[in-house]
Design a protein around this nucleic acid. Sequence first.
DNA 1: CACCGTTCAGTTGAACTAAGCAACGGAATTCGG
DNA 2: GAATTCCGTTGCTTAGTTCAACTGAACGGTGGA
Length: 412
Amino acid sequence: MVKKGLNGFFEKFLKQESLFANKKAMQNVYIPQEIDHRDEQINQIAEILAPVLKLEKPSNIFIYGKTGSGKTVSVKYTTENILKVARENDINVKIIYINCKLKKVADTEYRLIAEVARMAFEKEIPATGLPTDEVYKIFFEALDEEEQVLVVVLDEIDQLIKKSGDDIIYNLTRINSELKKAQISLIGISNDYFFANYIDPRVKSSLGEEEILFPPYNALQIQDILKNRAKVAFKQNVLEEGVIPKCAAFAAREHGDARRAIDLLRVAGELAEREKSLTVKIKHIDDAEEKIERDRIIDIVKTQPKQFQITLLAIFYLFHKSKSKKKEFYTGDVYDVYKDFCPKAGIRPITQRRLSDIIAELDMLGLINAKVISKGRFGRTREIQLSLPTHLLGKVQNILLKEIELDKKLFE
DNA sequence: CACCGTTCAGTTGAACTAAGCAACGGAATTCGG
DNA sequence: GAATTCCGTTGCTTAGTTCAACTGAACGGTGGA
């Protein structure tokens, strides 16, 4: 029965006209032909980076601006153009892009250098076992083998520095004086301007030889961006009147996040398509908004390590228990429940020290709200609240229970 | 009432440990002659 | 006897633990008005 039903489904799916002409244009990795409202910044980047085409080291650049203000796309756009020219003229320039936020890829000094060496020179470097100096040496020697300029783009550099200190930047900038043939130059991208305040001034001055600010887009600019993307991505006349302004308005409300606006429009398109609607209606935007939020949260929850999930579950439990009474609880409460859950789930409990860190990280992820408060003579702790939209609570809770293979009865 | 020292319950930083891994070098094994 | 494999040692990273110093405001006692 299932088979027959599915066959029908796929056939219909094939026959169905898609609303999209080129969906790629709506994806995050897409780099448009032209970037709206960022001419000034792109020119600046281009001017600073231009010397690479003469194999001279360009200044290091520090770029900051809120999420979705076009930092990454502008840098990628510029660097790709440079690479194109470099290829045509046979100039030995390498530009690599690394996102420091990715766990297990580039969130420590060792892993970052290893990743750079891997990407730039296809060196295989083991995940562990080597001294960091050794990795530097491998990288250094590969780099200095021929005359070239290497530009390393470090996206979300604040995450890296927060976690593993600013030596990395210092070391990388210092390498230059020892290189004979090659040169290396850094582009740091951060969404947190204030992070510059707590890095070593020496590092700051070497990284921030040039600073570029990306202001957030306003609603009109987002509309332009959306229009241009939509022109490529959607077929003609599928977007109803007012759809684009609404997307833009949604996104502008959140500090002008263009990426969000684009996601919103894409998901709205997908939803419309699934509904077999011939056009994208305003209603679809509202649905999309909810779906994006839901998917994002569910994805975060699902991809957390077990310890994080069980911690979160403990918080859920406390929330569940205290529904009508108080809405927030303290680290100690969470740890008690957590310790109780661990044997049931067959997981070795972690110390409270670590749990404290995990709670802080869950807070960073936005799943919970945890702020350090002092209760006077009754000590100091974190005040923890769940910060999920109510309509998702049940769903997330079930996912957690399934993930750590605990029984629903726990909550009854 | 204003001021001030005490106190609590974690927070936070730093040093330390265990688990994995790679490289090295010497011992054991294999192999062809 | 040379080449190869095996194995133990050393030294590394990293996640997590242990230790201990630190924190910040309410409590409650003190003294002054």
